[in-house]
Write a protein that binds this DNA or RNA. Structure first.
Lengths: 231, 231
DNA sequence: AATAAAAATTGAACTAGCACAACTTTTTTG
DNA sequence: CAAAAAAGTTGTGCTAGTTCAATTTTTATT
């Protein structure tokens, strides 16, 4: 994790880059005036569950996984953080610690935005706040969906769901599967690595997916959707 | 579910009642100007997962359970809604449907506040929005805790946690346990009713808790805390 | 290229928790 | 208050998924 100079910003943050298209003007300002830009290498933690959070992270380039940690180094992957997305928004609104960890799965350029700066703008401008909160609430709705998956579906359904989810990134990031280990995939489906391997092999033999080293291609998406629903 | 006349409001909503103490002035205004007050009987649904949400509920009197539903009438209880708490805040910020259900476990007086009214005030007043969002984020942080519990703890730990949680209500609502069936308790711990019964009996025999019909007394809280942590 | 370290794979044994069935107790209802 | 329905209780067998251990493949390092 190395600090980036002001000169790098122009390069890192091409204001026309896709990841900035979704931002509201006020959000744009916030990003633009952010003083601290940092670079994370593959495998670095962007946030660590339980640590003090005085800033919010904005992913400018690269991919990371957001996950919750349990005891004895177990973890469950919540989502893949893409460029243009915020990490740690909840700590702006209440709480002073991150309630999840995140780890870079490729080299990342990240902008750190002070919480106080965000709070300040929100107080001045309700509309701006609503925008940020919508992004936050979006993530929250997924949390409910995740809870249902974990509670009510079994291995096969969860794996199908995980594969379909990761696959949605493949359009913009064709290398996404090659960045993930079997353990990563297992942690999306909330199963053991061994179970994940066995299921993947089975799906491969049945022609539902195609395993090609680390890369995975979904050959029969309708079938996987079915699996996802049936649990 | 019967509509309450304006005359009833004074009676229902004693402005000095404890449940109003925590409200911000703007929130108070919102509640005060709320036109629709409804009464739910024990067993009625206040919200139903997936249905259209044009309003937010404010619990004035009574207790309810908030829960997520799965297939084949399985459900998982998230929390007990007490007087002074809002239900369905997320739908204000984004999404048009409730992402959970809730059901009255005693007769309830509930005020319905139009989403549009809330949005309007937020746009005018960022501080007001922050207050509401803090309440919302609070619930969200619990969701992460819940996810960890479900993922990493087993029956005993989950039951201990559920009992300790429900017990926190006992000070203000001594009858809380008697309002809950074994199935309700099981659904807090995310286990089957049968398993819940067996565990409760075991804890009773070991003198950790005392079963008295439907009521439950925690005799050895430190031990339960230990169980909760160890999973 | 050789060696070490990490990740992937496979099979076998084990277990937490569930489903089912039978029965008892409590609650509701006409 | 009697009958019916709902809730609670208990034991038994079953199974989805884990754990463990051994082996192979891939990746990183010197």
């Amino acid at each position: 994790m190395k600090t980036i100079t002001a000169q790098d910003i122009e390069y890192l943050c091409d204001i026309n880059a896709p990841c900035f298209q979704a931002l509201a003007p006020k959000e744009m300002d916030l990003i633009r005036t952010s003083k601290t830009q940092v670079q994370f290498r593959k495998g670095d933690n962007l946030t660590k569950q339980g640590t003090f959070a005085s800033y919010v992270l904005f992913m400018a380039k690269g991919l990371a996984i957001q996950y919750v940690e349990g005891d004895n180094n177990k973890s469950f992957n919540l989502r893949i953080i893409q460029p243009g997305e915020f990490v740690g928004l909840s700590s702006v609104f209440s709480g002073n610690t991150f309630n999840y960890s995140s780890i870079a799965i490729s080299d990342c350029h990240v902008l750190l935005v002070e919480k106080s700066a965000i709070s300040h703008v929100i107080e001045q401008n309700g509309m701006f706040g609503l925008g940020l909160i919508r992004r936050y609430t979006e993530q929250n709705m997924n949390l409910f969906e995740t809870l249902r998956t974990v509670l009510y579906k079994q291995m096969m359904g969860r794996m199908a769901e995980s594969l379909l989810y990761i696959n949605t990134m493949k359009e913009h990031y064709p290398e996404v599967f090659t960045l993930l280990s079997r353990k990563h995939i297992a942690d999306f489906a909330a199963i053991t690595t061994e179970s994940a391997v066995k299921i993947l092999k089975t799906l491969d033999k049945e022609g539902i997916i195609k395993l090609d080293g680390k890369d995975i291609s979904l050959l029969n998406e309708p079938y996987l959707h079915d699996l996802k629903l049936k649990g």
